[in-house]
């Protein structure tokens, strides 16, 4: 009887953990458009609800654990609110790492941030550029450790 209860408890705990893991992984994905990006060769371009947006990261090559400057440039009209960038790894919750962007000229927004290093050795990161009330796009790129 006791063994049966323990088995059920084990299965319940295991299910809870699996649910939490899948929920965490799924929450990091979503319907945002994802674009592969060779950020070390130059700016990457994508569209957010019809607006052309570029992302550039300096200095190059882009290294983890270093101070980086993120530049988002719009082609066409200025957005109604300043965009921001959330840094993370595809399929892995790394915690909230947001880069606040400020106006740095005509249609240009700039901010400072750091891409942290993952001991797993995975080098693929994503920068999710969000324009409030418009939409977002994820730029996926490799960094140097």
């Amino acid at each position: 009887m006791k063994s049966k209860v323990q088995t059920r408890l084990f299965i319940a705990l295991l299910s809870l953990i699996m649910f939490a893991i899948s929920a965490t992984i799924c929450s990091s994905q979503g319907k945002t458009v994802r674009v592969q990006c060779k950020v070390n060769t130059g700016p990457c371009w994508a569209h957010i609800s019809g607006t052309k947006v570029s992302l550039d990261i300096e200095p190059k090559p882009v290294k983890a654990m270093h101070d980086l400057t993120f530049t988002v440039t719009f082609a066409g009209e200025n957005p109604v609110a300043a965009p921001y960038i959330d840094l993370g790894m595809p399929g892995m919750n790394m915690g909230r790492n947001r880069v606040i962007l400020k106006p740095a000229g005509e249609l240009v927004y700039r901010g400072e941030g750091v891409i942290v290093r993952c001991p797993s050795g995975r080098r693929t990161w994503k920068a999710k550029v969000t324009v409030p009330d418009v939409g977002s796009v994820e730029f996926v790129f490799d960094v140097i450790y």
């Binding site: 953990i17 939490a20 893991i21 965490t24 992984i25 929450s27 892995m92 919750n93």
Partner: peptide, 8 residues
């Protein structure tokens, strides 16, 4: 959240 996804 990272406790369940990452730390485990």
């Amino acid at each position: 959240t990272v406790g369940f996804g990452h730390c485990i």
